[in-house]
Amino acid sequence: MLAASAIPNTPPGGLMADTAIFDVDGTLVDTNYHHALAWYRAFRRYGITPAVWRIHRALGMGGDHLVGEIAGAEVEEERGDALRAAWTEEFEPMLEEIQPFEGAQELIEEVKARGFRLVLASSGQKAHVEHFLDLVGGRKIADAWTTSDDVEATKPAPDLVGVALEKVGGDSGVMIGDSVWDAVAARKLDVPTIAVRTGGFSAEELREAGALGVYDSLRELHGNLDSGPLARAHR
């Protein structure tokens, strides 16, 4: 088990959290390799052949950052919008293949039952996010959710985390994510992160990015809620 022992029950500054912010893509639903393949195909349309592992390492960033990260500033300037449009065309046929991770719905139900305001946070396109919400029963469980319409800049910028808190009037939050970019973005607002390894990042990388605890799966996280900041909400 990679879960941390003695994870703090309170976020930095001693404030207990009132809001649980769940990343959606790669954390609740198993999308990362679909994203990587769609980006690879989009780049190939323009004669660019990045190694797929490099694309995977950038996942968790939004598309506004990913093109430059993978192909450089010049490609972003000249073809960024076209590449993002190509990614959409490549990704959408895969939507029906995507499934939630085991235990996703049960976990968010339990966290909500413990008194937290629950936000499902994504900077994805509205239609994609709504599809993923349906996969985990999110419309009935969550207090709010986000899409690309809600943010000006995606992760690693902290906009998504800030908007998530604003949507529910939260004072302090806990981020639950699968990538180093989740932890980096949350840390900019002093929001602690709990990470699951469903995004393919190592426990060491996630901790170095700022994660308080790292779990192999949502099931493992669910079984250890009492030992961390999701034990109970502060209201």
Rank of each mutant, 00 (worst) to 15 (best):
residue 176 I to T: 01
residue 1 M to G: 12
residue 118 L to R: 07
residue 53 W to K: 14
residue 233 A to P: 00
residue 19 T to V: 09
residue 190 D to N: 15
residue 136 V to M: 11
residue 3 A to F: 14
residue 80 G to R: 11
residue 67 V to D: 06
residue 45 R to C: 10
residue 177 G to Q: 01
residue 77 E to V: 13
residue 231 A to Y: 03
residue 128 H to T: 10
residue 167 K to P: 00
residue 61 M to D: 01
residue 224 N to Y: 03
residue 62 G to M: 05
residue 75 V to R: 07
residue 123 S to N: 13
residue 80 G to S: 13
residue 210 G to R: 06
residue 30 D to H: 10
residue 223 G to H: 13
residue 226 D to C: 00
residue 13 G to L: 01
residue 156 P to D: 07
residue 40 Y to W: 12
residue 13 G to W: 04
residue 234 H to I: 01
residue 59 L to E: 06
residue 113 A to P: 13
residue 184 V to T: 14
residue 37 L to K: 15
residue 58 A to M: 05
residue 113 A to W: 13
residue 137 G to L: 11
residue 185 A to V: 09
residue 138 G to K: 08
residue 149 D to H: 09
residue 219 R to M: 00
residue 222 H to F: 12
residue 85 A to G: 10
residue 122 S to H: 06
residue 116 F to Y: 13
residue 186 A to K: 06
residue 74 E to H: 14
residue 45 R to A: 08
residue 216 D to E: 15
residue 134 D to F: 09
residue 180 V to D: 01
residue 219 R to D: 06
residue 24 V to M: 15
residue 108 I to C: 12
residue 142 A to I: 05
residue 213 G to S: 08
residue 109 E to R: 15
residue 223 G to Q: 13
residue 228 G to A: 05
residue 67 V to M: 09
residue 223 G to P: 07
residue 74 E to L: 14
residue 209 A to N: 03
residue 87 W to T: 06
residue 187 R to G: 12
residue 133 L to W: 11
residue 20 A to L: 03
residue 54 R to P: 09
residue 115 G to C: 08
residue 234 H to A: 10
residue 46 Y to I: 11
residue 102 E to A: 14
residue 200 G to S: 10
residue 107 L to T: 12
residue 48 I to A: 06
residue 156 P to N: 10
residue 232 R to P: 02
residue 231 A to I: 04
residue 211 A to T: 01
residue 22 F to Q: 05
residue 49 T to E: 12
residue 116 F to N: 03
residue 157 A to Y: 12
residue 128 H to A: 08
residue 40 Y to S: 11
residue 1 M to P: 06
residue 139 R to M: 11
residue 18 D to N: 13
residue 152 E to L: 14
residue 112 K to L: 12
